[in-house]
């Protein structure tokens, strides 16, 4: 089904999207929020710029955005796929627990904040460009990959991995990460590590038509936390 979002407002638009059984294509999208909130089994294609909280609590559906997206994409997402053919705003994949988010361009601050994993649920975020500060803050699980395909500089901002206590962050860069917090260790990703993310990178390269040789043309650093109980020694029983 093809829908125009023009002057519908988010509530009506989302009601219509929810009521459709099959796939939906939305055009004239200008900042309508909550598109695909909790959606589980369809493909939603959006032409334009969806508003905040795109694919919040997403539960298995696929969302493709032909354009940029705003803040809180895939917030508390449980399963499914979000593909952004452009840039994304802040707090992308906040508290995400499963599924995949691909962003072709840049993402804002706090990308993948407090993402977590559980058993077979292992969320993956791949950013083709750069991210702002606080990348992977409080990261508890899953995998964030920042490729920096549009820069020769280091592609993440300040304070990467603060409070990180699980998961892993991969950063493709010719310059090594600096100013990492004490509880995070960084090093060049080993063959085994690359093997683990190869399938996701392959899919990313196919989705956006980017050559894998280009992706692997620079060193990839891997950031992991030193322990999963970062605050264990903070307290004293009283």
């Amino acid at each position: 089904m093809i829908l125009s979002a023009y002057e519908l407002g988010f509530r009506l638009l989302n009601e219509r999207i929810r009521s459709v059984n099959g796939d939906v294509t939305v055009y004239d999208c200008f900042g309508e929020r909550f598109i695909g909130a909790g959606a589980s089994s369809k493909t939603i294609v959006i032409n334009g710029t969806p508003g905040n909280a795109l694919g919040m609590y997403l539960d298995g559906a696929t969302i493709i955005v032909n354009g940029n997206s705003q803040d809180a994409v895939g917030d508390t997402m449980n399963d499914g796929k979000i593909i952004i053919n452009g840039n994304a705003g802040d707090a992308l994949g906040y508290a995400m627990r499963g599924g995949i988010i691909f962003v072709r361009g840049d993402a804002g601050y706090r990308t993948g904040i407090h993402m977590k994993e559980y058993k077979d649920k292992k969320p993956v975020i791949i950013i083709g460009g750069c991210t702002g500060s606080f990348l992977g803050e409080y990261l508890a699980g899953g995998c964030i990959i920042v490729l920096g395909l549009n820069t020769d500089d280091y592609p993440a901002g300040e304070f990467t991995g603060v409070g990180m206590h699980g998961g892993e962050i991969f950063i493709r860069s010719s310059k090594p990460p600096v100013n990492l917090p004490g509880q995070v260790t960084a090093g060049i990703a080993g063959e085994e590590d690359i093997c683990r993310i190869k399938d996701d990178i392959q899919e990313f390269s196919e989705v956006f038509n980017i050559k894998t040789e280009e992706i692997f043309s620079k060193p990839i650093y891997r950031l992991v936390p030193n322990g999963k109980n970062p605050y264990k020694r903070l307290y004293m029983d009283n």
Binding site: D75, A140, K232
Partner: peptide
């Protein structure tokens, strides 16, 4: 909670959204 056994479950002070 859907978090691995033995891993701290940290609720940050604010909601980051």
């Amino acid at each position: 909670r859907m978090v691995p056994e033995g891993s701290d479950a940290i609720s940050p002070a604010p909601h980051h959204d």
